[in-house]
Structures are given as structure tokens and as C-alpha cells.
Design a protein around this nucleic acid. Sequence first.
DNA 1: CGTACTTTTGAATCGCATCAAATCTGGTGG
DNA 2: CCACCAGATTTGATGCGATTCAAAAGTACG
Lengths: 219, 219
Amino acid sequence: MRGDGGGYDPDHMKRSEPGLHPVLAELLPAELHALCTQVQAGKGERLFATGKKPAFMFFVICGEVTLERLGRNGESVILQRSRHGFVGEASLNSPRYHCDARAVADSTLARIPIRELRASLERDPVFAMRWICMLNREVKRLRMQCERFSLNGVQHRLIHLIETEGTQGRYPLGAGLKSVAKELGVTHEALYRCVAALEKNGDLLRDGGELHLLREPAA
Amino acid sequence: MRGDGGGYDPDHMKRSEPGLHPVLAELLPAELHALCTQVQAGKGERLFATGKKPAFMFFVICGEVTLERLGRNGESVILQRSRHGFVGEASLNSPRYHCDARAVADSTLARIPIRELRASLERDPVFAMRWICMLNREVKRLRMQCERFSLNGVQHRLIHLIETEGTQGRYPLGAGLKSVAKELGVTHEALYRCVAALEKNGDLLRDGGELHLLREPAA
DNA sequence: CGTACTTTTGAATCGCATCAAATCTGGTGG
DNA sequence: CCACCAGATTTGATGCGATTCAAAAGTACG
């Protein structure tokens, strides 16, 4: 039921010291590989706290992590919710964490020591350029996500998701429609109804593990 | 009514070839300084177009620039609204622009040649690290914007905006509430009503050029 | 078999988009 | 100084669509 690992060998997360996650293995230079460790975080566990000196950067492999900050009245404001990818890149250059990180579901994470990561970036321009490209992709992805959120109507958002994040009109639902609903910022009920309506119209097919957009809905 | 120039000498924008903007002067290495030019863009002018080969990156000094994409029905969707800072960082390593940039107010911009920028990044690790820090801030901002869009209710979004993008509960409205409404992804009518309700409750003050959140609304 | 979860459908409510229109504002020119 | 216009601001009325609450049916797992 964690399901959001991106299609990699699910056995990974059971091993105590598995190989580095493919995305990280490709991005990071060899000298950092050995310094990264894979860790488990139980639901509710805190990864780091506001004000502490940043020691590690985290990469979410599966599960869910939030960054939160306290508002002026003590209520917590969620800054970011991550189910896959880096968390707290900003801590790379901060003397202190500016927010709390908390696993809101049982999660598998890669832990990268910041001091050594920094050192590698400063000494290896090719790695630095890869890192910049990674950040550029992240910026682009986030902009598309903002665009999607700015659409009104579940149907518009769903189609935008399939067309921008999917391939050939196909979008894999790793963890079920319910998690897709969260990604779209709508309730799962609304998404179920939307999918059902599109299917009845013959605009969409649900083939087991993926959504297949057949044509542009007339409406 | 532009107001967001960051407090620098307003005469800057009148000179035809003024010194480089302080933020850029600090960020960019010396060899790039001479290659940057300051340009004026009239309201409505397009800085670059989707699909074109990226030649320049822009930095907004004053005025307002939007990044937009065309939705399927020809309506333009705003991805980003920038009154100060970089526009189109992602074009650094892209063969094509993935969106349009347009000045929505008379604006002063710095124009940086991408080819030379990339060359400097590849050869100068210290500069690359500064660039990475800049991108980190941008990623952080975008993540917060996504989180904001995921909130339901105009009020929640507005408060989140003030608490995350503002300082001390104060948020400057450079171009009026109408542009804030777009930033929040709601109609301006809805935002006006929300602000009016918060003011009547004594939770919010509208002091000329800025919103001031006095306390957390009980509701 | 029972537990826990997802999936699905139903019904009621509410908030926002939408359309409309009045007021206010700053700017321009007679 | 006034007439006038374009844009921002504000208020009102209406309808739709998503949220919400509720519950049933399907599914995986021990």
C-alpha cells in the first residue's frame, strides 16, 4: 500500500542496505554513493526540526513527507508535501532548517550528508551542472503543477495531468485513483465520478494499472 | 503603483545604460557583467515565445512579467507572475522555451545571454553554487504555491499567501487585489468579498499598499 | 471469515464562478 | 474645472459543481 515507488523493484525497501536508488545513482558522483544510506521512517516520525543545523538532505523513495512551519498562532502551515523526490534542497545553503520535516506515512528515504554533498558540488563542475539541470526540471515540473491547479473542474485537471505527466495519453496509477485525487487537489469521490463519466463517453479507458485518454472530450 | 523594485534608486530605470542591478552584480561573475543589457518592455510586449530556441534569460528589475501557456481552448494560463527576479531559468538547458513570457506592465529587465551564462556555470564552481542557491529558493517558492493551490477556500489561500510570502503578517499588493486574485487562482470578486469579510471581523487591515494580517481568523 | 482498505454510488449542502451592474479612481483633453 | 473614459473596485443574484457525509460493494490479506 505504499505503492508510489515509481515502478522499481519493490524488494528494495525490504533490504537493510540496498543499492542506491537509480535516480540518485545517476545524479550523484561516485564518491557520494557510499555515503548515502537508506532509512525507514515511521508514520509521524520527524526527520528534522526548525532551527537545527542541517546535516542531511532526504530523498523520498516511497511514502509521504511534509515540510511544515508554525504560523503566528501556533497552527502548523504545510509548505510542501512530497511523495517522491528531494525534500529540503534549500537546506543545502542554510545554516539552519527553516521548517520541520515529518513523515506522514511509513516511508523509505535516502539520506545524503549535506557537508559532503556541498563539497562535491564545489569541486566537480560537471556534477554541479547535473544538479542545476535537476533543479531546472524540478522548477519546470512545479510550474506545470501550478498550471494544473489553476484549472477549474476535475476533468480539466485530470486531462492536463495525463497530457503533461503521462506518455502517449497513458498515465500509470501506481497507488490507485485515490492518490491521484490528492495529486489533483480534489476529493476521491469527485475523481471517481469524473473518470466514470469519461469512460461512459468513450473518452477514457481504465486498463488495469493505467488511464488511457482516447480522445479530447467534446465538453 | 509599481512599487516592488526592492528599494533601489528609482532613477535606475531612466538611464539608458545603467549599472547592473545589485542582485545580478552579486550573483553573476565579472565576465558576464558586460554581456548583460538592460532593456525596457512595454505593456503587452512578448519577451520570448513557446517553441523558440532560448537565447536570453530575463531578470525583472521593475514592472511585471508573466509566464503563460496556452490551454487547449486558446485561453492563456498564468504559470508565474514575477515582479522581481528571474524569468525562465529552466530555459538554461532546454532546446526550446516551454512557455511565453510577456510584460503585463511597462517593465525594466536585465537580459542575459544563455550561451555565455552556461559557459560560466561550467567553468566557475563558485558561481555554480550561487546559482544553485538561487534555484533552491525558487523551488521552495513554487512548492509553497502548489501547497497553497491545494487549499480549499479563498480565505485559507489568502492567509497562506500572507504567512508564507509576506513578512510579519504583511503582504504588499503591488498591482492591486486583482492581480493577487490571479495569483491565488480565484476570481477577483471572490477575493474582494473575502478581504471585506476579514476586515469586518478585524482579522485583516488593508493599509494602502499592503495587506496586514492581524490575527488568525477563528473560523 | 474478519479486518482494513479501496472503490463506488447517493443525497444534501455550500462556496465559488459567472453574469450584471453600480461606484470609484486616475488620467486625458476640451 | 469639468467632461469623459478606461480601469479597478464593490455589491448583488443565480446556478453549477465540488465538498461533505453516508453507506454499500468490492478486494487483499492474515
